[in-house]
């Protein structure tokens, strides 16, 4: 909702690669906020709809590591011992985070993008640890012309977003974000890139409050540039 450009970029890249993209217009949320807050019944009511709508898709591609993890890792937990357990497992097996899909399912690392800038990559925790997806986004960045990737110290450290955590414990969340911004700033990069929009919202929120010149951008947006 906050970042339509990400979705648009993703669609453009996939179509450029010759795939037919469908967007389930009536799906807006995977149920993670309620799930993470402990309200699994409420979460199931939202997630159940997702299960049904995506039943017939060949593969489900998600632009955020966090939502990707929800579908891939947590749906089977959420629906364990319910009649939908099998459906949840089936959806899990065909769900991919965007960069994982490009690299590991389609075998593509060069999408013909060009982005002349010095960037640093922030690993969203869910994409990194729940999905084990560290190499794919970097492989894609390596395929972008005129782009220079500088790794920051503690690239794998959480930015402090964490969903409702950011609102329940803003002081901790902010401190974590400040540490992240400082690491990114130290690389001299113009852009902090990530494959997770929620991380970028956190980091961008802090950067603009600090008046920092560093900008954030989603991996898909870079890949859509030419």
């Amino acid at each position: 909702m906050m970042y339509p450009k990400v979705g648009i970029s993703m669609v453009r890249i996939l179509e450029r690669l010759g795939h037919k993209v469908e967007y389930p217009e009536d799906l807006v949320c995977c149920g993670q906020p309620a799930f993470n807050s402990g309200y699994w019944d409420e979460s199931r009511s939202v997630a159940g709809k997702v299960l049904g709508r995506l039943k017939d898709a060949e593969a489900v591609v998600i632009a955020s590591g966090s939502c990707g993890a929800m579908l891939r890792v947590f749906y089977p937990d959420l629906f364990a011992k319910t009649p939908q357990a099998q459906e949840a497992k089936a959806l899990s097996a065909k769900s991919y985070e965007f960069s994982d899909f490009l690299v590991n399912r389609l075998g593509v690392t060069d999408v013909g993008a060009r982005f002349p800038a010095r960037v640093t990559f922030h690993d969203g925790c869910h994409g990194l640890r729940e999905l084990g997806n560290k190499k794919a986004p970097r492989a894609l960045l390596a395929g972008v012309r005129d782009l220079e990737l500088v790794e920051m110290k503690d690239a794998e450290t959480c930015c402090g977003f964490g969903g409702t955590f950011a609102a329940k414990f803003p002081m901790i969340s902010t401190a974590m974000g400040e540490v992240k911004c400082a690491s990114a700033f130290a690389t001299g990069a113009e852009y902090i890139v990530s494959n997770d929009s929620s991380c970028l919202m956190q980091v961008q929120g802090l950067l603009s409050r600090q008046g920092s010149p560093v900008k954030t951008i989603h991996l898909a947006e870079i890949l859509a540039q030419s």
Partner: peptide
């Protein structure tokens, strides 16, 4: 449990 197993 599936953590980090990804597709691997």
């Amino acid at each position: 449990h599936g953590t980090g197993a990804g597709h691997h």
